[in-house]
Nucleic acid binder design. Structure first.
Length: 433
RNA sequence: GGCUCCGUAGUCCAACGGGCAAGAUAUCUGGCUGUUAACCAGAUGAUGACCGUUCGAAUCGGUCCGGAGCCGCCA
């Protein structure tokens, strides 16, 4: 008969003292003392101390347990026993200890530098912290998909290989596409716009690439982009969607990932207040708030890290900043009806200094306005011919936004650096492992 | 793109107004029947590369390579 293995968490929460269990996993910590070996075992669900006594197992099993280093993979059997001395309150008194594969000395030990850990990222991701972050990220993505599904959005699959040199061609990764020049996508927005003309409300989760040499705690060269696009929705409706979506995601994490948040020492109190509506302030109002606080910033300047930090100093929820001056935003945005110096757009800034998480706007529908802006900024029309076409065949008001998944995870987990929000971070100086 | 800093055992670090490269941890050996990232004793193991200054360079200077932090750009 096939052996049935029990997950460690399930075994412990069963509380069935005296019962025999088979578990399998990896050695997380090990200590030995002559004729007793304590091997703390880890699997995908939890950890438990396995106590291997010389008197309880065969001499061969004992010798293997004594020899096994951290990260050795093991299948073992034993009786569950409550013991205050064991971490977690329970231990397994081992009756059989079978090594699946011995581990060489594990390079990751107590005192480690960031560069070394990043060089060994393929091993570092086994840590409990990294595992907790990945579980939370899974819930962020799952929560988003759940909300989109409940609200009539259709998930679509835009291309990653493109020829559009979006705004600022210098930030794209170029590649050879047979005999043509192509790029890795920086945003699926334009393709999503094309899809709204049939599906009306769409979203996509795709990798996005930025070839900027940005060395900051909130930039990756490859990141996951969650983008939504909605027909018949103006900028205000766009913000309603964003605040509901973000609140739903946070709610899912608070509901399903209490243990992981606790393991990361993330105080969840601030997250609990995240419910619609989020505060909305115009760029102009933000300018005067900043100058009241002694910051020297004038119309047409974009907000930097420091400005975003100051703007959300007292906020507990994310804040929308609307109506940015046209000169600092993209050509495809729609001019604001009440303030023609600005676009109908909004950036969502996370509190506690975590910075911009979403950029969104209502899109321009007037093809002539769009073309004249492109000419002013010397953006070539030819690559965008198909995009301009969208305005010629029954254009409708529409809006959309892009959310940086890792930026959201960074805020939710209160991480120091965005690279921990992704298992294998790509930054200007790292593409290995 | 701009500014700043750092490369010493597998790893984390000390020594740097030039003179025997110290410690911690990991690993190995021995000891220990209840450890809590166990403890005790011993062992193995290192100055990023090249050039220069000097009687003598981890230490001073130059070039290169690698990495980190801050700002800009953004999600």
């Amino acid at each position: 008969m096939e052996k049935v293995f029990t997950g460690i968490r399930k075994m412990i929460s069963s509380g069935r003292e005296g019962e025999s269990f088979d578990i399998r996993g990896w050695i997380y910590r090990t200590r030995s003392s002559g004729s007793i070996v304590f091997a703390v075992m880890r699997d995908a669900t939890g950890i438990v101390q396995c106590t291997v006594k010389k008197s309880e197992v065969s001499s061969e099993d004992f010798e293997q347990a004594a020899r096994a280093l951290i990260e050795t993979s093991v299948e073992c059997a034993g009786r569950l026993k409550a013991d205050a001395r064991a971490p977690g309150g329970y231990e397994l008194i081992v009756t059989s200890f079978r090594v699946v594969s011995f581990a060489e000395p594990f390079p990751i030990t107590e005192n480690q530098s960031e560069p070394f850990l990043l060089d060994n990222r393929h091993l570092w991701i086994r840590s409990r912290e990294q595992t907790a972050i990945m579980k939370i990220k899974e819930t962020v993505l799952g929560g988003a998909r759940e909300w989109f599904a409940e609200n009539g959005f259709c998930e679509v699959t835009p291309p990653i290989l493109t020829t559009n040199a979006c705004e600022g061609g210098t930030t794209l990764f170029p590649l050879k596409y047979f005999d043509q020049n192509a790029y890795l996508s920086q945003s699926a927005q334009m393709y999503l716009e094309a899809l709204t003309f049939s599906l009306e409300k769409v979203f996509a989760v795709t990798p996005s690439f930025r070839a900027e040499k940005s060395r900051t705690p909130r930039h990756l060269t490859e990141y996951w982009h969650l983008e939504g696009e909605e027909a018949w929705v103006n900028n205000e409706g766009n913000m309603l969607i964003q605040e509901e979506l973000v609140s739903h995601i946070i709610g899912s994490v608070l509901r399903k990932r209490k243990e992981e948040l606790a393991l990361l020492k993330r105080d969840a109190e601030g997250l609990r207040t995240v419910e619609p509506p989020f505060e909305r302030i115009t760029y102009e109002r933000a300018l005067s708030l900043l100058s009241e606080r002694g910051m020297n910033i004038k119309w047409g300047d974009d907000f930097g890290t420091e400005e975003e930090k100051v703007l959300t100093l007292e906020a507990v929820k994310p804040v929308f900043v609307t109506n940015f001056p046209k000169e600092i935003k993209a050509f495809y945005m729609k001019e604001d009806k009440s303030d023609s110096r600005t676009y109908s757009c909004a950036d969502l800034i996370a509190p506690e200094g975590f910075g911009e998480v979403i950029g969104g706007s209502e899109r321009e529908t007037d093809v002539r306005k769009m073309i004249s802006r492109m000419e002013e900024q010397s953006i070539p029309l030819e690559p965008y011919r198909w995009y301009l076409d969208l305005r010629k065949y029954g254009s409708v008001p529409h809006s959309g936004f892009g959310l940086g998944v890792e930026r959201l995870v960074k805020w939710v987990c209160k991480l120091d650096h965005i690279r921990d929000a992704v298992p294998f971070p790509r930054t200007p100086s790292r593409i290995y492992p």
